[in-house]
Design a protein around this nucleic acid. Structure first.
Lengths: 226, 226
DNA sequence: CGGCCTTGTCACCTGTTCGTAACATTGGCG
DNA sequence: CGCCAATGTTACGAACAGGTGACAAGGCCG
């Protein structure tokens, strides 16, 4: 499975040069010519990394970078900025705004590839390090608030995520509705215990096939089975 | 049924030495040469124990250990670390990260086998120790709300489960119907004492052969005998 | 401001469970 | 052996618990 990289530049020459070298290095490459297209593709295709030109028509590269950081779907994707200006100010700014590295034009394609490799490797080992709970094909990344089934992301709301997390952390043991209300909602239930049922239903809906883990124990509560 | 042991080391000599001795001792042995392979095999084959070299190409042995702990499938598998470094710091670190024991190279294969045996024995008795009430072949796991007879699950309703639990916890002593009503139903019986009889009957039906534990003491009440 | 998403509540519906009563069986005792 | 109380068994309606769909209030974002 090749890693996908999004290259954003309005000069088609640069795009082609970069794309060629990246493909040589074994990456999949997609491209965008302006900021809007870049954001759309980033969100739709979730590349492993984005190479972003500083100067873009319509929207500044900085702007794209900032917007990517705002959207949780793309917030984690590393960005390398390409800039024609060599001034230090720009560099710092770029990094402060969330770029992971930068290169000044003209740059050596070889160096770009090396930097990309470095960033992706660093990210990989970091990703493996975060606290994740894995239940067969179901993976829950607690600090990142991400859940996935067979590698496919599951969109959960805050409450749903917490409910799932609590159940998984106490996997095997039955949790009464009261207990869940205390642990998930965190204060003594001004809340109807039946609300738990509704959230369980929504959770099951979203989990799809993974819902088989969520077990109802009639008269007692719910349980996450392995 | 032999127990399976995964040996992870990049030096094939070490692997063979260890594998030979373990096979002699009656274990099944599988092996892996690097961290990634180790994780894959651990997850796929679920060995009873992993012997893990501290130094591995690509990924540190520590890393493998940490990742194994994260995945519920492998979290419970004991790990013995092999290390060339004899420094105390490394030892402590390894143990803190979830290894169960360690050996410094060069080590005596005989000692390795002994330690493995010890760990597996300890684990066995610990597994049986979790919060369960065991009456011969009848096992009651209160937090999980599971009852089983000879490993086969018994479906009980909430009331039946509680009734059984109370009887087992006071095993040997006769419980009057009034007492059972108080302990199982939790409030002063607006309820007919004959109701207890009905529930006892249902319980006996579901327990099948295990119903022999449920004893009627004429004129007094019921008792769980061993 | 207006639309969308989240979230807590309801009301409805279904299958399950429970309590009870009626009937059958058992066991102790004279 | 036969009686009677205690217990086992069966059946059934009522109550209940949980799934489900709908909805309104609040929050967030553009």
């Amino acid at each position: 499975m090749k890693q996908k990289i999004l290259v954003v530049d309005d000069e088609s020459e640069t795009v082609e040069l970069v794309a060629f070298n990246l493909k040589q290095a074994g990456y999949d490459v997609i491209s965008a010519a302006d900021g809007e297209e870049a954001l759309k593709k980033a969100k739709a295709q979730l590349p492993a990394l984005v190479v972003l030109d500083w100067m873009l028509p319509e929207m500044e590269g900085v702007e794209v970078c900032k917007l990517m950081r705002r959207d949780s779907a793309t917030a984690g994707i590393p960005v390398i900025m390409l800039t024609a200006k060599a001034s230090e100010i720009d560099r710092v700014l770029g990094l402060e705004l969330g770029a992971d590295d930068y290169l000044t034009k003209p740059f050596s394609p070889r160096e770009l590839v090396l930097r990309i490799k470095k960033i992706l490797d660093r990210k990989k080992s970091k990703d493996a390090d975060v606290q994740t709970l894995t239940m067969g094909e179901l993976v829950i990344d607690v600090p990142r608030h991400l859940a996935s089934w067979k590698g496919k992301k599951i969109d959960l709301t805050a409450t749903e995520f917490k409910l799932l997390t609590v159940l998984v952390q106490r996997r095997g043991r039955v949790q009464s509705r009261d207990q869940l209300l205390r642990d998930v909602w965190e204060y003594d239930s001004m809340i109807d215990t039946r609300t738990v049922d509704t959230h369980m239903r929504r959770l099951r809906e979203k989990l799809g096939p993974a819902a088989k883990f969520l077990d109802t124990v009639r008269g007692v509560g719910y349980r996450f089975v392995e």
